[in-house]
Write a protein that binds this DNA or RNA. Structure first.
Lengths: 112, 112
DNA sequence: TTGACATATTCCTATATAAGAATCTATTTT
DNA sequence: AAAATAGATTCTTATATAGGAATATGTCAA
């Protein structure tokens, strides 16, 4: 079995660095395709293909205006990823606490 | 050019659902490989291969004890992902605000 | 209508899987 | 020492890329 399709979910879609770049670029405001290609130094067909993956996973929205198409990041779609990562927050906090405790124990030992 | 290796970074490593399952399972406490296979209903070689990817990206740590190897999730390694997603938080907040504002405007219009 | 411009699609290729089967290594038990 | 147990590795195969080149589609301007 090969890897799951890039379009199967946001986890696979954002695995590609260029797509993360595009998402960051399109977060503050909508942009036409050409702008993306120029600003991120990518070929236009490449941008279109990445946008297709992002569109199919709901990570970007598109608006037509004349011959231009404006894309913008749909930040809401990134929340599930944030939520998933958040479930581990308690564990990295615990780890930090353990480190802190160890440091305090060492300091206390010094004091003696 | 094919997709980047699963071991190239955590974004690629966590794209695989089984690996996310394993990370969740190993977050509360360390477990030997056999436990993972049994609990998640996976073949042992499959688990070993996934663990290799997770180890190479720093997402899990390993401890040997006799013929068993205990793995645990290294939650710290998931932070960069959380941080990345967090950069979009302001935008999804804005979107929510916009929706809220629209709802309030509609309510105000009703009142008239 | 014709040409120019913006974007999308198709074709091609090298590459990296993920799962399954079989095998190998290391450690413990009898 | 031999058997049993725990895990890792190797091999094979079908498949989905990502980028580059070429082309297609759709819209505006002269």
């Amino acid at each position: 079995m090969p890897r799951a399709a890039t379009t199967s979910d946001i986890f696979n879609a954002i695995a590609e660095p260029r797509r993360r770049q595009i998402l960051a670029f399109l977060a503050p405001s909508e942009r036409p395709v050409g702008d993306i290609a120029t600003s991120l130094d990518l070929d236009q067909p490449s941008v279109s293909k990445h946008l297709r993956v992002l569109r199919q996973t709901g990570l970007v929205r598109m608006r037509c205006q004349g011959r231009q198409k404006f894309y913008r990041t749909n930040a809401e779609a990134i929340r599930p990823l944030h939520d998933w990562a958040s479930t581990f927050q308690q564990y990295w906090s615990h780890q930090l606490n353990r480190i802190k405790q160890r440091a305090e124990a060492a300091a206390a030992a010094q004091q003696k």
